Simulated scan of single mutants.
Amino acid sequence: MQRVTVTLDDDLMDELDALIAIRGYQNRSEAIRDLARAGLKQAAQETGSDQNCVGVLSYVYNHAARDLAKRLTSTFHTHHDLTIASLHVHLDAESCLEVGILKGPMGVVQHFADHVISERCVRHGSLHLVPTTELAPANSAFPHSHEH
């Protein structure tokens, strides 16, 4: 681990200390590490990075919309190599929530999520990306060298 000295103005330090209190960090170093990770993740997303990632795509849609469920299913089947798992929840008489766990190159996962979220009658959608260093091929059965 590297030790770094950073100079911050008083207003920025006050904001950082407020964040530390709200989120319950044990110390400033933990907060700054999390902020650095978030900034690096955002920068990778903005540059269309080919870095591998795991993504959580969640969206709410009107299941009665003409052919929407069929189009969404077809989109996921066409990109089966990105999908690890999915969850479908009936929220009410009209709305469904779907959550898909995806993995692959960040730019590819982002493009796929953008396509799903932009479908007509998809009401709300978001993608949360977590950069990873190594990934086994999607949907592969690989031996784990550690316990979960």
Rank of each mutant, 00 (worst) to 15 (best):
P131N: 11
G107F: 00
N52H: 13
L129G: 05
T132K: 07
A138T: 13
R33S: 08
V60S: 13
Q110N: 05
V4Y: 07
A85F: 11
H90A: 11
L127H: 04
E134S: 07
G107C: 10
L102Q: 00
R23K: 15
A64G: 06
I20V: 15
P137T: 11
G125Q: 06
R120Y: 04
V108N: 01
I22Q: 12
V6W: 08
V54S: 11
R123N: 02
L16C: 11
D50H: 09
L91Y: 09
N27L: 03
G39T: 04
V122Q: 13
C96I: 02
L40R: 11
E147N: 13
V54N: 02
V4L: 15
H80V: 04
H124N: 14
V122P: 12
L57R: 09
D50Q: 14
S140A: 14
K70H: 10
E98M: 02
N139V: 08
S49C: 11
G48V: 03
L102P: 00
E119Y: 03
R28H: 08
T47Q: 14
A141I: 14
H148S: 15
E30I: 03
K70D: 13
Y25N: 05
Y59F: 15
M106K: 05
N27H: 06
E98G: 04
G107Y: 04
G125E: 05
L12K: 13
L82E: 04
M1R: 07
T132A: 14
H79E: 07
V109D: 02
E30F: 09
N52T: 12
Y25D: 07
D92E: 03
D67V: 00
V6G: 02
T7H: 05
I117V: 15
D17Y: 08
M1G: 14
A113V: 00
K41C: 14
L127F: 01
E15T: 12
V4H: 05
